[in-house]
Amino acid sequence: MDVQSKVIEIIAEQAMLEPEDVTLESTPDSLGIDSLGLVESIFAIEEAFDISIPFNANDPSASDFDISSVATIVAGITRLIEEKAT
């Protein structure tokens, strides 16, 4: 499974939706994922890809990991996986 599909699967599970209901434009807010749900999703993503995501729930916008939409989350994870490989 590619990164995007896996991330969508994790986020859909968190939001209690079907993966096809989650699009790249979806935001955590639009999916009904609150701050605790976001922390849980990030944990699940870290476990799935064996990466560490810099994320502080106090100020999500402060880290360079952009969680504003599914697309930016996928892009951030793809970058972290590449960095890990090098």
Binding site: V39, I42, F43, F55, N56, A57, N58, D59, A62
Partner: peptide
């Protein structure tokens, strides 16, 4: 640590720069 509400540098209550 798992909850991601901990600061890695200092406790700065009420400051705009607080981070946990």
């Amino acid at each position: 640590e798992g909850l991601r509400v901990m600061s890695k540098d200092a406790c700065r209550p009420f400051s705009a720069t607080r981070n946990g």
